[in-house]
Design a protein around this nucleic acid. Structure first.
Lengths: 186, 186
DNA sequence: GCGATTGGTATCGTAACGATACTAAAGAGG
DNA sequence: CCTCTTTAGTATCGTTACGATACCAATCGC
């Protein structure tokens, strides 16, 4: 009412609410599901309370609490960082991975998969553009894929390298998202 | 990991999280913002705790609580239904409308407005299709616009009529969303 | 009338969340 | 080395969200 409504944004609000509601499945909470999904998609440098904090856009206190509840539930384990003893590394347990198989978001994926290819492509382009615009406006990290980063050095036979962290990267690593990622065209 | 990822859905998850984070502005909570937005867009039959419950997809106990907090904050008023004394009618106060002018979602609208028209149109079509698919799958109410309803009877000079509720509708009414709405092509 | 349904509220327990205060390890400058 | 600062994370508090359950009062069906 107060401003010119943008239909796409209103639809987005509604879908956001549906996603949030789905997050209450299996006795878990939305933030817990988001944490599990993140841990499944993030590389080893990013699977920390700090990385999760940046991803969720929450405060570290809140995230610490969420991680503790997941640890209590046996879905996540903590271990120390080999070099930096302040840092904690998070990992999904088998139970955590099993839980992801019961993610209600799968229903949304199924609905999306049923869309005509052209519509889905348009949706994807629009979402990508809108997300990029928002991240640029708020200065949040993009959390892009490792191999699309300006610090990524491609090697031969799946032996890559991160020039920022000076760490080797496998082919699998290079397909995961990273807190430190900075797009090549920056 | 566990399933074929659909990029559009992953982008949607991320945007949903951004929207949720914006919901903590101005000392309000996400659910409170969503309630305010709903009350600004819903017709008089739908501005009830029950209507809000259906819109939010929450339980009535939760919604009752959210409404009470908004009432305490002076953003919403309650009044009795003229005929059914069980029912409560909700209305935004001037302070409630003023609060909506400070809605952080405006930033998202601004970003969306900056998108190329073709991209925005594709985004809108995709979101609409995806939302329709989800609502169909879960049997939730569409909350469409009054005038697109099969119970809507168009009159002359802005004097319309709802055949379901047997109530007159103004031109303004006909542009608002309604709990009872059922699309014509049903 | 009377039982079932409907619209809401009350209360409990868990978790989210921001805010603030805190601890401990790592780094920086001298 | 030894402080000062920064960084990674935890602890605790108060408010709210949320589902679940129980409850109340008005209305409807017959």
């Amino acid at each position: 009412m107060t401003e010119a409504p943008i239909p796409a944004v209103e639809l987005l609000e509604r879908l956001a609410r549906l996603i949030a509601n789905d997050g209450h499945a299996q006795r878990l909470k939305p933030a817990q599901w988001e944490a599990l999904r993140y841990l499944a998609r993030a590389n080893r440098f990013s699977r920390t309370p700090g990385g999760l904090t940046a991803w969720l856009g929450a405060t570290k206190g809140t995230v610490s609490q969420t991680v503790m509840s997941l640890e209590r539930a046996g879905l996540v384990t903590k271990s120390g960082h080999p070099a930096d003893r302040r840092s904690v590394r998070l990992a999904l347990t088998p139970a955590g991975r099993a839980m992801l198989a019961r993610d209600e978001i799968a229903a949304l994926r199924h609905s999306a998969a049923g869309l005509p290819a052209a519509v889905r492509a348009g949706l994807e382009d629009g979402l990508r553009a809108l997300l990029a615009a928002r991240l640029a406006a708020t200065g949040q990290r993009p959390f892009g894929i490792c191999r699309d980063c300006r610090h990524f050095a491609r090697g031969s036979g799946g032996d890559h390298f991160c020039r920022l962290l000076e760490e080797p990267l496998s082919d699998d690593d290079s397909r995961l998202i990273c807190v430190e990622q900075e797009p090549v065209a920056a």
